[in-house]
Design a protein around this nucleic acid. Structure first.
Length: 434
RNA sequence: GUGACUGUAGCGCAGUUGGUAGCGCACUGGAUUGUGAUUCCGGUGGUCGUGGGUUCGAGUCCCAUCAGUCACCCCA
């Protein structure tokens, strides 16, 4: 036997066993976003590396060490080779696409996308090198009402999925100017106390000083507590925006916790930032996160445009669905057709097609590959079908079919073939109701 | 990227101070020539993650490597 080739580290197959949960999740999200009037957009998985450098930030971990970078081929006209990257997140590509297609200037957009993202991190539970996000982005709406709407979508989604124990954390970083000024203040403060900083915090001083405030190291606690307070340095417009958002959330009955140390890692955030967090997934508890990024469109070459969005980590939410034992609807077949004998095998094939004509929603699995009667019945059972349809020589002679219930008590019955479609139609109705 | 733990049949696991590998489930054949699941009896299946080393002898000890898990870091 040839040597096995394994999947790449941190990149996993979604196996048939898990597919119903994924489908349940995806269709729930899709339907929900449609009810709020959001349109789907699909972008390439690969973009110019510079796009992510400009959007996410040069000195973020994502850009510095987590991107998968490809060198493009020189094209046939002899164009210059350039650097491409597998997308580490979706917002940058969405903004790029929006600007390129003229979707953003002087109009409102509510968009969503779904797909794989790539980051070369050390894998652990809830953190993979290829992972999936569903992103939701809005453009051209400056007020806190859209922040509130995006948060409401999250809250409603957890409810529709049957998920519990997901909490909302909320913060405001202020306008880009206020945020930069505050950042400067922090750098000065912590630089003056260099000797008290731990290794991580010294590094963060250059990468993301706001993150030092969220340090888990107890020896840093005192220093952090005495640091300049973010909320005392908010610009007045941002403070007003934040206050209005809170009152809107209160009005909708959505509870939240203001976390002044909540800082998003990507450079483009300003004003509102939020995270939906659970304590049931260990250290990868952020299941959905986002915020406002009013400066990004301009930064990527568009006209100044307010924007706000969030992204969900699909694997983490699937994991949570599993830990909370949420049952996705099973997509078992309705019936499995057992055919005994050569004549029946041939007749059964065309019977199956007639049934599919008559009942487009019918989930029917035909036995293939022969097998004796017992083997076929075993396959019928294993398929998960509710009913076995049995077509043998006896049935053929009398133009009948036998229906045997596999999932419930009850005797098997014989039906004239001409009544089968009507009977199955009722059966489908019944299973739909459950 | 740092640290720790784990890797034995398709899956979940046992394997004593180093002595030639086992259990459950699954799969498969039969009891039942046209009835699954349930019951009973039989059977297939392992280069012990991979590669080196120590040893008369390695699943067991040592080194390397790959993968997974947990924490840090980072983030969805």
């Amino acid at each position: 036997m040839a040597k096995n080739i394994q999947s790449i580290r941190g990149m996993h197959d979604i196996l048939p066993e898990a597919a119903p949960t994924w489908q349940f999740f995806e269709s729930t999200v899709r339907n929900l976003l449609a009810t709020y009037g959001y349109s789907e957009i699909r972008m390439p998985i690969v973009e110019q590396t510079d796009l992510f450098k400009r959007a996410v930030g040069e000195v973020t971990d994502i850009v510095e060490k987590e991107m998968y970078i490809l060198e493009s081929r020189r094209d046939t006209e002899g164009g210059e080779a350039f650097s491409m990257a597998l997308r580490p997140e979706g917002t940058a590509g969405c903004v790029r696409a929006g600007i390129q297609a003229g979707l953003i200037f002087n109009q409102q957009q509510r968009l969503w996308y779904a797909g794989p993202m790539f980051r070369a991190e050390r894998p652990q539970k809830g953190r993979y090198r290829q992972f999936h996000q569903i992103g939701v982005e809005t453009f051209g709406i400056a007020g806190p009402d859209i922040d509130a709407e995006l948060i409401a979508i999250g809250a409603r989604l957890w409810k529709q999925l049957g998920l519990k124990n997901i909490h909302l954390e909320l913060n405001s970083l202020g306008s880009l100017e206020a945020r930069h000024a505050y950042r400067q203040l922090l750098v000065e403060y912590f630089s003056a106390h260099q000797d008290q900083l731990d290794e991580d915090s010294k590094r963060r001083l250059h990468t993301n000083p706001l993150r030092i405030l969220d340090s888990k190291n107890p020896t840093m606690r005192e220093l952090v507590a005495a640091a300049p307070n973010l909320h005392e340095h908010l610009d007045s417009e941002s403070a007003e925006h934040f206050a209005q958002l809170q009152s809107m959330l209160d009005g909708m009955g959505i509870s939240y916790r203001i976390n002044p140390r909540l800082v998003r890692g990507l450079d483009y955030y300003s004003r509102t930032v939020f995270e939906w967090v659970t304590d049931e997934l260990g250290s990868q508890g952020t299941v959905c996160a986002g915020g406002r990024y009013d400066g990004l469109v301009e930064q990527l070459g568009g006209r100044p445009t307010p924007a706000c969005g969030f992204a969900m980590g699909v694997e983490r939410l699937i994991l949570l669905l599993e830990t909370q034992a949420v049952q996705a609807p099973a997509n078992n077949p309705d019936v499995f057709l057992v055919m005994a004998g050569d004549a029946a095998a041939k007749a059964g094939l065309s019977l199956a097609e007639q049934l599919r004509d008559a009942l487009p929603d019918l989930r029917l699995v035909s036995n293939c590959g022969g097998g004796n009667f017992k083997t076929q019945m075993k396959r019928a059972d294993k398929s998960g079908a509710a009913v076995a349809l049995i077509l043998g020589e006896n049935e053929l002679e009398r133009a009948e079919i036998t229906l045997k219930p596999l999932r419930s008590e009850g005797e098997q019955i014989n039906l004239p073939l001409c009544e089968l479609a009507a009977h199955l139609s009722q059966l489908i109705e019944k299973t739909k109701q459950h």
